[in-house]
Design a protein around this nucleic acid. Structure first.
Lengths: 224, 224
DNA sequence: TTTGAAATGTATCAAATGTTACAAACAGTG
DNA sequence: CACTGTTTGTAACATTTGATACATTTCAAA
């Protein structure tokens, strides 16, 4: 049995009232499945032809590398939808193996039924489009970030992005260690490069605050 | 005036007959705008509240860096849709400035009208969902690829991906130069690393064919 | 076959970054 | 205050890659 009060908090059904959701679900076919802890929910490579939403409990996603070993990717819990980017698109297979990390109840909506749902209710349609679009935007941003090769460029991009048009002083909310991880570099390398940039008069650092002294030169770095 | 024969070749209207498309467009509001060469079509930062489809001619997308200089991003021509990932999602602004590189006719469909279209016709809905999902998958793949740091890892990942479970010999359809570009490294560096891997007995190369000799060690490389 | 352009293999050197290690500065706690 | 763990600055050295140059091979057109 579905629980509309929970499902309507899912990003896909956000804004729908529980009653309305109940009514919508009456118009489509779907399944509610229970899993016990450690049960497999999807297997990597399996065709993804239905939308899965966690109604209760939590799951983990793991990926198999080429030798068959598993690497943990992500944890998710109710009321989150699974693999929204793989229901449509060219590659219709789950990229990950999902298994229950607690007792779990999943709502499973076959793709054609979900399409029906999208056409019945424009809010759901908008929500779903927003979900995958936001994901695409997020990935695009991340990709742009990785496209900067040198550490200097990454720092410059990060600071200019944060600073925007106006401010010159940027509050860095992360430790150097976290920042380095985000940049995909080691902590000492980041510190060294920051140090060099200070010496060259590009920036000033004070603990968590970084002041941009020469915006023009910083921009220059990103051209390369 | 829209030209259904052209528009139905757009990824969004693929599979729709020209007549059907004509009929669908009768049910919504839209605009057809003409631009002359070098006219601005969208400006980076502008709110993206309508779907734009090139009906005639070609455009270029440019991005402003922080200092205001422009960098060319992409060329597109009829019948391609613009910025499909930015019509929905959190960030509803064009990331790029688009200008005409020839005389151009654009079809402009306001977002609410496009949503109507999606609800009227499930093929269009599927097409659009496929478009953005495929894009998300593409970005995701690319990101995964970039997550491998060393050239050895990139080669290993590429080869194991291509080889799958079965084959040991991989046909490389690209030249070293193209491959290097795809990996984001220089051509001599790629050749050097390939050479090293041959010497270590990991692979054998014969022109465009690469034979994987030691899958276990290749996998090892990806663990890091 | 000859020829020339493109693709490939290889070498050398410089630059960027990783690795490791350690010291100094800071923040919280008893 | 003294103590302790975390964050930050810095150094020495190793590794990886980029840049550049040039020789060799391949392949297709004349």
């Amino acid at each position: 049995m579905i629980q509309p009060e929970i499902l309507c908090q899912s990003p896909i059904f956000r804004g729908i009232s529980p009653d309305e959701l109940q009514e919508l679900f009456r118009q489509i076919h779907y399944q509610v499945k229970s899993y016990q802890k450690n049960d497999l929910i999807t297997i990597a490579g399996e065709v993804c032809d239905r939308l899965l939403i966690i109604q209760e409990g939590s799951v983990k996603a793991e990926m198999n590398d080429y030798s068959g070993k598993t690497i943990k990717i992500e944890d998710m819990s109710a009321p989150w939808p699974l693999a929204t980017a793989f229901l449509f698109g060219k590659e219709n297979r789950f990229p990950v193996t999902v298994s229950a990390t607690s007792d779990v109840v999943m709502v499973s909506i076959p793709k054609p039924e979900f399409v029906k749902l999208l056409q019945l209710n424009s809010l759901i349609l908008n929500n779903y489009l927003n979900t995958i679009s936001t994901r695409a935007q997020f990935l695009s941003q991340k990709l742009k970030f990785l496209s900067f090769k040198t550490i200097r460029q990454k720092i410059a991009h990060y600071l200019l992005e944060k600073a925007g048009e106006r401010l010159q002083t940027v509050e860095v909310p992360q430790s150097q260690k976290q920042l380095a991880e985000m940049f995909g570099v080691t902590r000492p390398s980041l510190a060294r490069t920051l140090g060099e940039m200070v010496q060259e008069g590009l920036i000033e650092t004070q603990r968590r605050a970084i002041k941009i002294l020469d915006k023009a030169k910083m921009n220059q770095l990103l051209k390369g």
